[in-house]
Nucleic acid binder design. Structure first.
Lengths: 210, 210
DNA sequence: CACCAAACCGGACCGCGGTCCACTTGCATC
DNA sequence: GATGCAAGTGGACCGCGGTCCGGTTTGGTG
């Protein structure tokens, strides 16, 4: 607490949720490089599209070694996750502690509907990155983020008085919100997002009304 | 974003569909090599597991050049698809022209339930290969096999008198039967297949009972 | 049978994701 | 300051999926 007034450490919005880097004491150079990497990655993604951004290019653009990228983010999916971490954190905050209909206090079915709509909006905004972040089917299903979503959905299903195998119903509902699926429906099949959202609402009602 | 200096487009010359043997005129040597490759691939998968089988190893085991593998099957997923093509064809035959409850003639809801159970059994038997065959989220959703399943499920939903967006409901149902998801539930989460099957039955009833 | 164009073959080659490890740097302590 | 050392760094390296293209085989045709 000896106060280092000369150190202009930016707060670095620590991801308090069970996401990737719970970084304790991070050395100054490490923090600086993480910033550079995220900045470079965001820039490259914006100007070339996710598919045309290689890990090596990100490293080069950040003027950093390739090994550093992987040390910081584990793998490509980890980097993409970090890119949308802020949005994901906001979403979690909203349905965990925010106001209804998303947050606690409202009707569980309505909360479920709102959760799906929020997720769909996120896919709309960050579909490409999300798809890359969830590309590995193996890890996607075991990823902490998915765990948080699953816990939340299962909780809402129980609150809604759903009888049956809540865990399996949760998996089915989350599968419907899968980034790749939604992106495909939207961009390949040409379904408007409003239609997908209506489909979600309908599905939630069908599943909970029993 | 529109200007992409590099050409990411893959012309993908002829790539005959890895599905049913609609192989027009196939030269004798080509047919012989395809046999060898499928044989070798099956052997290697059986003895090492899918994850430890490289395309190069398959080529070597078949005493064939690497390029031949890709010429025949397009990519890794295509090879895996070819490996389970027979089983998949049997499944399609069963629900298209076989006896009830899977085939035509029975109650659509029961057929839907039976379809899911048949699919789950397939995942149980060939889960590893199926996962590899459907690994690329991009192509999986556009794959002919999925199209056949989707058409069938949608048809059953309509026959069951379901009101609502049948196409979206179909996508949700199929997402529940996703090989990676089921495999994860079964092998990682330790859910017995019987439970997953019961979950499917329940889900189908919830979705159709409205 | 001789001929030829198309189909096919094989392995060198490429790019990318990911790992490894010898070297450097930041920080706490004395 | 000097020192010890864990944390961090970077680029050479690896393996695999996938492509390319010069040479070879096949099977129809006259």
């Amino acid at each position: 607490m000896a106060s280092t007034p000369t150190a202009p450490l930016t707060p670095l919005p620590t991801l308090a949720l069970p996401m990737a880097g719970a970084q304790e004491h991070e050395r100054a150079d490490a923090a600086r490089n993480r910033r550079r990497l995220l900045d470079a990655a965001g820039r490259l993604v914006a100007e070339r599209g996710v598919a045309n951004v290689t890990m090596e290019a990100v490293a080069a653009a950040a003027e950093v070694g390739k090994g550093t990228v992987f040390r910081r983010f584990g793998d490509r999916a980890g980097l993409m996750n970090a890119l949308i971490n802020h949005t994901e954190t906001d979403l979690q905050e909203a349905f965990l502690h925010g106001p209804p209909p998303l947050g606690p206090g409202g009707d569980p079915v309505e909360r479920l509907v709102a959760f799906g709509h929020a997720r769909l909006e996120m896919v709309d905004l960050h579909g490409e990155v999300l798809r890359a972040a969830e590309s590995c089917a193996e890890k996607r299903l075991a990823h902490p983020t998915r765990g948080v979503h699953a816990t939340h959905v299962a909780s809402l299903l129980r609150d809604a008085g759903v009888s049956g195998d809540v865990q399996l119903l949760t998996d089915s509902l989350l599968a419907t919100l899968d980034a790749s699926l939604v992106w495909h429906q939207n961009h390949v099949l040409g379904m408007p997002l409003a239609r997908i959202a209506d489909g979600w609402t309908d599905l939630v009602h069908r599943v909970t009304r029993c």
